[in-house]
Design a protein around this nucleic acid. Sequence first.
DNA 1: ATAGCTGCAAACGGTTTGCCTCACA
DNA 2: TGTGAGGCAAACCGTTTGCAGCTAT
Lengths: 122, 122
Amino acid sequence: MTPQRESVMAAVTQLVHATPDQVADAVPGVDLTTVYRTLETLEHIGLLAHTHLGHGAPSYRLAADDHVHVVCHRCSSVIDAPAGLADQLSRQLAEERGFILDRSHFTVFGTCADCAAGSSHD
Amino acid sequence: MTPQRESVMAAVTQLVHATPDQVADAVPGVDLTTVYRTLETLEHIGLLAHTHLGHGAPSYRLAADDHVHVVCHRCSSVIDAPAGLADQLSRQLAEERGFILDRSHFTVFGTCADCAAGSSHD
DNA sequence: ATAGCTGCAAACGGTTTGCCTCACA
DNA sequence: TGTGAGGCAAACCGTTTGCAGCTAT
């Protein structure tokens, strides 16, 4: 655990969800390359997890923070839902196909209630 | 419907799942930029849909081909599962949160049976 | 004439690579 | 003194933008 790694962990902890770019901004003095390499390392040893919350950069968070993501692609809001939301699907995939769902990577897209209500704009 | 658009539709139909790059390879003489713009247009008018099957480029397919994707991130295999797989989750999100799940964009990740069995590597 | 589509080239965002340096076992 | 971590710059991939030419109203 180098100082840079401690800083990156601290930044992700504080930001809850963070792209590599956001992490780099939060840890001035640490090179962006180092941020990428560090995020990868920390994920590999199981401290962090990432998922894709949209078209851009991936979002990192603490692996211990076990929840799934529900993203509105109209307003881009991200809802953190309890991990249990994926349980039934997870069970079904396991039973029918022996497939082990990775919940940490689980994100679904759609239209949130607010956007569905005021569904004027595209 | 220009000739280029017909070609792109034909290519996606034939490839089943195709990245913009793969489409461009399948339609020589059509510029990559045109492929991007055409895929976007065809998606907008409801003929195509795309989802993200991994870290790289998005994958386009016919919108009429209504299924969800299950991806093994160990061997990168893509399983096309019936759209019904998402029904329970879809219902739950609608009831609890008024969230309308977009099935065309639905992809889940995990470890397939084969990789889970021979789980030596990585 | 006008509007929309195409091609080409350049810009762009996000990420990775190569290489050289430094710190510490 | 050798191994791993960090910094910097350049390459890289996928995508978008600007612009000019073409085609079919």
